[in-house]
Simulated assay, not measured.
Amino acid sequence: MDASDALADREWRLIREEAWSGPMNMALDEVAAETAAAGGPRTLRVYRWEPGTLSLGYHQDPDTVDWAHCEREGIGVTRRPTGGGGIYHDAHGDISYTIVAPDGELPGDLVESYRRLCTPILDAFDRLGVPARFAETGRPAVHEPACYLRELHPAHDVVVPGADGPRKVSGNAQHRRADAVVQHGSLTYAVSPERHLSVFADPGADAETFRERVTGIADHADVDRATAVAAVESSLREWADAETGAWTDAELSRGRELAAEKYGAETWTRRRPGQR
Rank of each mutant, 00 (worst) to 15 (best):
R176V: 14
D126Y: 07
R150F: 09
A226T: 08
P23R: 02
T267K: 11
G40M: 02
R195S: 10
V130R: 04
D5M: 03
D126C: 10
R16S: 11
K168G: 01
S113W: 06
H196G: 02
S234Y: 01
L117W: 05
A155S: 14
P203N: 03
A228S: 02
W49M: 08
R271F: 01
E251N: 00
D123R: 15
I87T: 03
A231P: 01
D5Y: 04
V229K: 01
S234L: 12
L56E: 10
P107V: 08
A91V: 12
W268K: 07
D249M: 00
G129V: 08
A8W: 07
V77T: 05
S192Q: 07
D206F: 07
A178I: 05
E17M: 10
W67A: 09
G216A: 02
L54Y: 08
F200I: 06
Y88E: 04
A173Y: 06
L197V: 02
L122K: 14
R176I: 12
I99S: 05
A246E: 13
Q60W: 13
P154A: 14
C118A: 15
T209L: 14
L14N: 07
S235E: 04
V77N: 02
R139M: 11
G185R: 02
T119A: 15
N25A: 08
K262W: 06
E144T: 10
G104Y: 07
R271H: 04
K168M: 04
R195Q: 08
P102T: 14
D2S: 09
I99A: 07
F210I: 04
E30H: 14
N172D: 09
A8T: 06
A230E: 13
G255W: 02
P120V: 12
S96P: 02
A141G: 12
D5R: 07
D202M: 01
G52L: 09
S21L: 03
V199A: 13
D202V: 08
L236P: 02
T137E: 15
A178G: 11
G86M: 12
